[in-house]
Write a protein that binds this DNA or RNA. Structure first.
Lengths: 148, 148
DNA sequence: CTGCTACATTTGTATATACAATTGTTGTAA
DNA sequence: TTACAACAATTGTATATACAAATGTAGCAG
């Protein structure tokens, strides 16, 4: 992706600004591709993220603040995000018996199955996005990203 | 920024997935910081982007499709984005005399002035975001981003 | 036990965004 | 010249998101 061409500018962009813009452009690409991959499942990136967090819990229920803490892109209203996953039948939610302020959220069987399907598509998408990267490219990129 | 720590996972994340997640996390940081910088001006990143595009036009008016084409993060409703800039007095909009389907959007004096103020804050924010990067780091990062 | 503060989630509401349908304009083929 | 397709922007509407206020619960000082 050529930055100047994409944003149609002829003037030279200072390196620091160009870097920021470049990051944004790539991120848009990433988000678009993942959204396309998840579209058949009628699910957003954040919803997918929550499903994966729940799987990582290995049956141990999660409450809302835990989810919010672990989400890649945090959002201001996790309640309603979980509402949507519930209405799809992917998770269930009960109030925590030991502390009735909290809730316990779990993956359902249906959620687990769907997530397994999504995994395949997502793996393909990740691979496609990164197909020009060698392992050492990726390591280098991760090192550079650490500087942010 | 340590990925595993941030998303609170103990399991090892495959390198390709980690790379994608890392990109997203850094992008969130970038967006948050820029949003904070622009908050005093009561303007969004995309609105700021449009103002800069208009300045790049050097007085030559832009129409909506031009703006949309050049925006870093394109959106589905540039009309209403421009509405907001108009209501702030930063731009004006007339229908194009030579082709009445199009519009001509221009920066106002007020918009130009405000943009100049925003430049300062934005330069600081960019510098702060990239303060751990040497020039060669940035060049390297840009090269790697080209692979997406 | 009472009153108070902190906690965890939910709800209300205003704003933002996506997507499709609509409006008005232009160019052009018959 | 008329009819029609393509174009450019706008509008309607459903959904998403942010932010603040409200609800209900727990813990704790006195």
């Amino acid at each position: 992706m050529n930055v100047e061409e994409r944003i149609k500018t002829k003037e030279q962009i200072p390196l620091d600004r160009r870097t920021i813009i470049h990051m944004m452009l790539v991120n848009n690409t990433i988000n678009e591709q993942i959204a396309i991959a998840l579209k058949p499942f009628d699910i957003s990136i954040q919803q997918f993220n929550v499903l994966r967090i729940l799987r990582g819990q290995k049956g141990k229920p999660a409450n809302l603040s835990t989810l919010n803490e672990r989400m890649v892109t945090r959002m201001s209203n996790t309640t309603r995000l979980v509402d949507k996953l519930m209405s799809k039948g992917y998770v269930d939610r009960i109030t925590c018996p030991s502390n009735r302020r909290k809730v316990e959220i779990n993956l359902t069987k249906k959620g687990t199955d769907k997530l397994l399907e999504m995994d395949k598509t997502m793996a393909q998408t990740e691979a496609a996005l990164l197909n020009q990267f060698s392992d050492s490219d990726m390591k280098q990129l991760n090192l550079l990203l650490n500087k942010f």
